[in-house]
Design a protein around this nucleic acid. Structure first.
Length: 600
DNA sequence: CCCCCCCC
């Protein structure tokens, strides 16, 4: 099998002297984990042979470590190097050339072959094949790899007579806090607004940017006076040489960039725009998660997602419970080739300006996964980047799928609350609500129970609400034919009736009070809110009779219980999110399985 | 040195 592949003899010498070799075929004679204090930042060093020479300063970019970890890259493997960078690292004061493999393919696994030829160590005193001959001229390549050629290795980053372009650049993936002499050549793929903060540790302002090169990406942040120095200089999509930043461990909670470190600008930081041809530096890196897989992703994770905007809601406004701030949101339904859909919430200005009417492809880097009522949702935040109809292959493929197939397909909605979408909440008995200590958590507890309406409360069972769709705020009768909604902050000439359901439900084990959404109260009373309101207009006691008809009816109540505060008192509040007729087949099979459990 | 990211 190995005979099929001939090693690219002599290629190592060419590559390490600045030449370009596409798809070089080499043999990996040995792999070694590089000792590092941080186990998250594993690095592997390879001993490579091109059949003629040996080279031991080869590394894998950490993104492809799994090819070693899963055993695919055992000793003697024959590989094709599809993408690489050569670079220089500072090795105890001496510049040392390394080869960083960005992308490779295993052609023959090690166990199916053996060492080929008698390669000898690559001499490192050769004359360069390519000279870095003119000042201010970086060796650039339009191919997938950029080469940075050594031409005298003792130039210091500190030498003010040397323009930064003359220096050697390092791949972003090689940066670490343990080594501070480096220059990166990176594109700014995202730049935040200037934000201010004020907390117990002080106050100030900052902005951050995402930097990207062929090897990887990293976030950089500038604080206080460095904001004034750099904010206007740095523009999105431009390429810069950057050096002398401080490296620290990245907090994964706030960034999903593929880097264990992040950088902070210092007063010594140097930023210089690069005007060379730089098409080899990518625009943005994505690690898209298919929508059906988001079901299993932990809440609060940041992910990259791509989807067609199948539906979009109106702009909604309300006040934040905690801060009282006016919030604006818009909900977008994204669908992808998995034929699953998810709700994405946009906030603030992004929500306001969003136009989804043409069903565009939406790409989000760093969307936050949340949970609502048992379903998963996404939302954008300060560090997410949203792109509409970006010119990337994934977007074109998705467009094609949607226009031909997706548009007429029903998608599984993974944001569906527990009552639909195949997500089953737990069946319980009423006594369990107390006994299991429901509702202690932040999000509350969800369950379903089969119960009988013992008492439907008619007092205060209906109110005049804001006529605006989706607004359920009680209006204040102005006495002049106008009704004021404090939530919308305006007066309307009309209102709508809404039921405010409250009922005591019981089963064999006990009873409890629940409140019901108006839509669900309508199901229990078998009347619309509007009809009940009109009945009350002619007879104030009408709801007593209407409620009486609901007594002793049986339903399945899908509920959420949560501890809530009422004037210094904490009480458990249970809301029936959904009321459904009893499905006897389902209830009985549940009862049978419970009996089986008890027998065992 | 930020890091709140909201609501049903």
């Amino acid at each position: 099998m190995a005979e099929k592949y001939k090693l690219s003899e002599g290629s190592l010498r060419v590559i390490m002297k600045g030449g370009q070799i596409d798809n070089a075929i080499m043999q990996v004679l040995d792999t070694k984990r590089i000792a590092s204090g941080n186990t998250d930042k594993e690095r592997y060093r390879l001993l490579l042979s091109d059949g003629k020479h040996l080279f031991s300063f080869a590394m894998l970019t950490s993104q492809i470590n799994d090819q070693i970890v899963n055993g695919e890259l055992s000793d003697n493997s024959i590989i094709k190097i599809k993408k690489y960078i050569t670079s220089v690292i500072n090795n105890v004061g001496k510049a040392k050339r390394v080869l960083v493999i960005l992308e490779m393919e295993t052609l023959v696994r090690g166990e199916n072959t053996s060492k080929i030829g008698s390669p000898e160590p690559l001499p490192d005193d050769d004359e360069p094949l390519v000279e870095n001959d003119s000042k201010n001229k970086q060796v650039s390549s339009t191919s997938s790899s950029t080469l940075h050629v050594v031409n005298g290795n003792n130039r210091s980053v500190n030498d003010p007579n040397v323009s930064i372009q003359d220096q050697l650049t390092h791949p972003i993936s090689s940066l670490s806090p343990y080594q501070n002499k480096w220059i990166i050549k990176a594109r700014v793929s995202n730049k935040s607004n200037v934000r201010t903060w004020s907390n117990s540790r002080g106050e100030g302002k900052l902005f951050s940017m995402d930097l990207i090169d062929e090897s990887g990406e990293i976030r950089a942040t500038a604080f206080r006076e460095l904001v004034d120095k750099f904010y206007d200089l740095i523009e999105i999509d431009k390429v810069y040489y950057i050096s002398k930043c401080q490296l620290k461990i990245a907090n994964k909670q706030f960034s999903n960039l593929n880097n264990d470190y992040e950088m902070t600008f210092t007063p010594d930081t140097i930023v210089q725009e690069c005007h060379d041809v730089v098409e080899s530096i990518p625009q943005t890196r994505y690690d898209f998660i298919s929508i059906n897989k988001i079901t299993h992703i932990e809440v609060n994770t940041l992910i990259d997602v791509i989807g067609v905007c199948k539906n979009v809601s109106d702009l909604q406004m309300f006040q934040a419970k905690s801060t009282g701030r006016e919030l604006k949101k818009r909900e977008v339904t994204l669908v992808d080739q998995s034929s699953n859909s998810i709700a994405l919430t946009l906030w603030g200005a992004e929500a306001e300006s969003f136009d989804g009417s043409s069903q565009p492809v939406i790409v989000i880097k760093g969307a936050r996964v949340s949970e609502f009522g048992g379903g998963k949702t996404l939302s954008t935040g300060v560090s997410s980047i949203m792109k509409i109809n970006p010119d990337i292959p994934e977007a074109h493929r998705l467009r094609g799928w949607f226009d031909n197939e997706g548009i007429s397909k029903t998608a599984v909605n993974i944001s569906a609350r527990s009552e639909s979408g195949g997500y089953q909440t737990q069946w319980i008995n009423i006594k369990d609500v107390q006994e299991m200590g429901m509702g202690q958590g932040e999000k509350g507890d969800y369950f379903q129970v089969k119960g009988t309406i013992l008492l439907y409360r008619s007092e205060g069972g209906i109110y005049k609400a804001c006529p605006k769709e989706d607004c359920k705020k009680k209006v204040v009768d102005q006495g002049n034919g106008m009704y004021r909604c404090d939530k919308c902050n305006r007066e309307y000439p009309n209102f709508k009736y809404l039921l405010l359901g409250s009922a005591n439900i019981g089963d064999w084990s006990g009873n409890m009070w629940i409140s019901l959404f108006s839509s669900e109260a309508e199901k229990v009373l078998e009347m619309s809110s509007q009809a009940v309101g009109e009945a009350i207009e002619s007879d104030p006691q009408a709801l007593v009779e209407i409620a009486d008809k609901a007594h002793f009816k049986q339903f399945v109540f899908r509920c959420r219980s949560k501890m809530e505060n009422y004037n210094d008192e904490t009480r458990l509040k249970t809301v029936a999110l959904k009321v459904e007729p009893v499905n006897y087949k389902e209830c009985n099979s549940h009862a049978i399985s419970r009996i089986q459990e008890l027998l065992n």
